[in-house]
Amino acid sequence: MIAHAFFFYFFSLIAIISAIMVIVSRNTVHAVFFLILDFISIACLFIMIGAEFLGMMMLIVYVGAVAVLFLFVVMLMNVTEQKLSWFRGSKKSGHIPTGLVIGSVILLELVVIVGGWKYRDTFSETKFLSFDENFTNTHLIGNVMYTEYIHLFQISGIILLLSMVGAIVLTYRKREGVKKQSYFKQVAREREDSVELVDVEFEKGIKIDD
């Protein structure tokens, strides 16, 4: 039990510190690294409460894919050194109002969710997975996701597919005059297509049409 508590406080401490570091670190790339650290420690916390499938998915999806894209964007946009002008009391305080609005909206939503959960009994009577020691929670999630919630699952898949196609369509541009390698053409090329033997008449030569 002591070890459990120790690990819980260890991971929570790292999660909180790195979450703070995400917003205070001057270097944007460092901020993304701290975000990744935060994701990892949250995943560890998930694993500690027995939700190992969720924790692993968090690692694979957020850390393995989303955060890599984040990092790419930050690195390639070359916004590495944030000057944090608003922090030092400069007149340009462009980002503070936006941040405050978003932050207060999120806080409000959290309050509504937690309040609803706590103070209305019927609210928390939405379906819980029946917990059974014999099955792993991967089994349980799969059993519900592919039977009861199959429509929601498929709709979310279609939304993701659509957004993927949309992103490709938006960034696709057709360029003229680009020489592309065609494997089929290369492989299908025969001697007859490319070499022609010609009897050359003396002192006349041949005309190569091109």
Partner: peptide, 25 residues
Amino acid sequence: DINVGILYIFAISSLGVYGIIMGGW
């Protein structure tokens, strides 16, 4: 011997890219 062993390996190997990105950057 964990229940999600294969996911664990997959997750760890997808983290491996960070060592390289961090080194390069």
